[in-house]
C-alpha cells in the first residue's frame, strides 16, 4: 500500500498511526514490552528513565479525558515532560489550521505528539508534515483508527485467553463509525484469529466490510454462537437523528448485551468495551459488572500498552537523519 509512513526506510516503526499493515512480530513485541511495563506499574516508584528529557505533547482536538489521562500517565512513567493541549477550545476555533497548531508546538522542541482529532486521516496529515525526528501517535482519528486502544484490547485478550490462534471474536454495535473496531479488526486478523465477526444492523455496518476479513451478522443471537470474546462498542445517541436506528429500546432489545444473550457465547467468554459505556443501551449493567466482564482491567492495561508503544517508537534512530517521507508515488 502506498503512503504507509508509519515505518521508516528500514521498516521500523517510526510513528504509530494504525494497526493496518503492522506485522505479527511488531504487534507481539508491543504486547511483550507492555507486559514488562505492567510490573513497573506495580512497584513503589512507578517511573523508568527511558524518555528523560523528552517532551510529549498530548494534542487533543476532541475531548477524551480518559484516553488523554492514560497517555499522560504513560508518558510520565517513562519520565517524559508532558504538556496537554486541548485545542478544541483554543487555537483552531480562531481559524488556525491543524498544521499551524502543529508547527507552533513543534517550535517548542516537541519530540512526540499524541494526536486525537475528529477527522479520519488527521494523524497521517500531521505525520506527513513534521520533521523526521518528531514522532506521532494516533490517539484516534475520526472513524479511521485508534491503534493504541486496539493494541490494549489485544493485550487484554491475550492475558485472558493465552493465545489468538483458536479464538472466535465478535464485535457488536456501530462498526460504521468505530475507529476502535477498525483497529481491532486489523490486529486480530494479523494475529491469526481465525474468525472475527461484526454484528450490527446494516445501517451501522460499512459497505464491503467483509473485505476487511470479517464475517457480518445482523442477528446478534446467531453471531454470538460459540464466541470466545465479545467486544461491545459505544453507540452514539446521535445515530437516531440520522435515521440509522429507530429507538434506543429497539436497539437494546436487538443488540444490547444481556446475560441472556451472553449465554449463547462460550461459557468462559470474556466481555470487553472500550468505554465509555452506555448502560442499558448497548450493555446491561448485570453484564458490565458481571464475572465475565474484563472492562476495568482494560483501562489498567492501557497505561502499560501506551508506555510500550511510546518506548518502541521513541527509541534509537536519534542520530540518523531521515528525509521526511512523502507518500510513495506510482509510476505510470
Amino acid at each position: 500500500m502506498s503512503g504507509d509512513l508509519q515505518f521508516d526506510s528500514q521498516g521500523r516503526l517510526h510513528h504509530f498511526l494504525t494497526t493496518e499493515g503492522l506485522d505479527r512480530d511488531t504487534i507481539l513485541q508491543i504486547l511483550d514490552t507492555a507486559e514488562s511495563f505492567v510490573s513497573v506499574g506495580e512497584r513503589e516508584i512507578k517511573k523508568v528513565p527511558l524518555l528523560r528529557g523528552k517532551t510529549v505533547v498530548n494534542l487533543f482536538f476532541e475531548s477524551s479525558t480518559r484516553t488523554r489521562t492514560t497517555f499522560e500517565i504513560a508518558a510520565k512513567r517513562l519520565s517524559a515532560d508532558v504538556i496537554n493541549v486541548d485545542t478544541r477550545v483554543s487555537s483552531t476555533t480562531k481559524g488556525e489550521t491543524l498544521l499551524d497548531t502543529i508547527r507552533n508546538l513543534e517550535a517548542m522542541h516537541t519530540d512526540l505528539f499524541v494526536v486525537r482529532h475528529s477527522r479520519s486521516g488527521a494523524a497521517y496529515l500531521v505525520a506527513q508534515h513534521v520533521p523526521s525526528h518528531v514522532r506521532i501517535i494516533n490517539a484516534g482519528d475520526g472513524s479511521h483508527a485508534h491503534p493504541t486502544q486496539g493494541m490494549l484490547d489485544m493485550f487484554t485478550i491475550r492475558r485472558y485467553k493465552g493465545s489468538f490462534e483458536n479464538l472466535k471474536v465478535a464485535i457488536v454495535g456501530d462498526i460504521l463509525h468505530s475507529r476502535v473496531a477498525r483497529s481491532q479488526i486489523h490486529a486480530l486478523t494479523t494475529l491469526g484469529v481465525p474468525e472475527v465477526r461484526v454484528i450490527a444492523p446494516k445501517t451501522l455496518l460499512p459497505t464491503a466490510v467483509e473485505r476487511l476479513g470479517v464475517h457480518s451478522y445482523t442477528d446478534m443471537r446467531a453471531g454470538l454462537d460459540d464466541i470466545d470474546v465479545v467486544i461491545m462498542l459505544r453507540l452514539q445517541r446521535e445515530r437516531m437523528e440520522s435515521a440509522r436506528i429507530p429507538s434506543e429500546q429497539e436497539y437494546f432489545n436487538l443488540y444490547g448485551l444481556t446475560t441472556d444473550k451472553l449465554r449463547l457465547a462460550k461459557k468462559d467468554a470474556i466481555v470487553m468495551h472500550p468505554g465509555p459505556m452506555n448502560r442499558g443501551l448497548e450493555i446491561d449493567s448485570s453484564v458490565a459488572d458481571g464475572p465475565q466482564s474484563v472492562i476495568l482491567p482494560q483501562v489498567t492495561n492501557g497505561i502499560a500498552v501506551r508506555m510500550a508503544v511510546m518506548a518502541i517508537i521513541m527509541g534509537g534512530k536519534a542520530q540518523e537523519e531521515m528525509p521526511a517521507k512523502r507518500p510513495a508515488r506510482r509510476h505510470a
Partner: peptide, 23 residues
C-alpha cells in the same frame, strides 16, 4: 533485573525487542 528501561544508550539503539520483566 532487566535493565532495558534504564539503559543510557536507549536513544541510540532503541528498545531491546526481547525485553523481559524485572522480577
Amino acid at each position: 533485573l532487566d535493565i532495558s528501561f534504564y539503559r543510557d544508550d536507549f536513544t541510540r539503539i532503541g528498545m531491546n525487542p526481547e525485553v523481559k520483566a524485572s522480577d
